[in-house]
Design a protein around this nucleic acid. Structure first.
Lengths: 183, 183
DNA sequence: TTGCTAAGTTATTGGCCAATCACTAATCTT
DNA sequence: AAGATTAGTGATTGGCCAATAACTTAGCAA
């Protein structure tokens, strides 16, 4: 397998592992095992552990957008909003995608606390790009902000692991119904 | 100082450290240093590191509610919502309070991935209790859900470290103005 | 003043982990 | 077929860290 192909499989494996354990709680050994290569070989493909995390973070944000894009292609405004909302509910079927997003958020502060702004800049740029694309599709900033807010609530409910049918999920569903009714 | 008083100061110190580094990225040594005691003494006060994290998590959620409670005492409905929204903006002045919340969220999944449901149960119970109290104050479930969603968006913007005045913050402010106008 | 209790320390250990080094095996080039 | 490039491994190391064990100090009661 070429180095470039390997790098891609490392990024996918890293996403799964980092989603579970976070940056500090994930060993390069665990990533290597999942890829099926030796641990030292990761350091031929990436300069260090942080570079793997950054690549996984980039990939995660792009993947999120692709899911929204696919779901709402050709739509705008309220129709796009509904399509993307459904896409989000599909996305969270695997908790890992959501968890990786949250791991990015907490890693920014940790990194910046020790003087490293690199992850932060990647994350801020990536997240803002996601926001802009959503805003362009929904047509206005306020709708996009509200969409993101709902997304962040979903992330939290998923992370905390409330089972389907819990009152918190019901509350969210009711909120959506009411919004769709008004909109 | 009595053991009980020490335990309380450990919890406060632990919140700061865990907020920055997360569970795995925080050493008991760092917590002890912040408290001003030796590292092994922590294990006289708590059975293990996880117990310290759990205590800090509990404390964090309770503290959040106290801030809301103080701000909205005697108010209900829309007035309570505005008061609590302002309180939230005050809360995030120290990024640590917000970050500890997010660290709780990601720690639940990490713990449950290795078969430990304890943190998860504490976090789910604590967060739901927070939700119920807010719902009771705001008067209905949908308002509470929306309030929480906005809170989770704020958490994310804070975690990612967007500076005040960034378009994302402006979008949020506009959303609030519009909602207040309608409400 | 002795003996007890509660607060606290120093020293240590066993395990994990990122990263480096030196090496091997296969494929491609000329 | 020789030399060069590319993919990949095994062994190791130095540092960190949770937790334990053994010891110390200070107050207090009889």
């Amino acid at each position: 397998m070429s180095a470039e192909e390997r790098r891609e499989s490392v990024v996918r494996a890293a996403m799964v592992e980092f989603a579970r354990g976070g940056y500090r709680g994930t060993s390069t050994e665990a990533i290597a095992r999942r890829v099926g290569v030796s641990q030292p070989y990761l350091f031929r493909l990436f300069p260090n552990k942080q570079a793997i995390f950054e690549a996984a973070a980039e990939h995660c944000i792009e993947e999120t957008w692709r899911a929204f894009d696919r779901a709402s292609e050709g739509l705008t405004g309220e129709a796009a909003c509904e399509a993307m909302g459904e896409a989000y509910l599909g996305l969270i079927a695997d908790r890992e995608q959501v968890m990786m997003q949250m791991q990015i958020y907490v890693s920014v502060f940790a990194a910046e606390s020790v003087g490293d702004n690199e992850i932060g800049e990647i994350a801020r740029a990536g997240w803002f790009r996601l926001f802009e694309r959503i805003r362009d599709r929904l047509g206005d900033r306020v709708s996009a902000t509200e969409f993101m807010a709902h997304g962040m609530l979903i992330n939290t409910l998923v992370a905390l692991g409330y089972p389907a049918g819990h009152e918190l999920w019901e509350g969210f569903a009711e909120l959506n119904r009411r919004r769709d009714g008004e909109g």
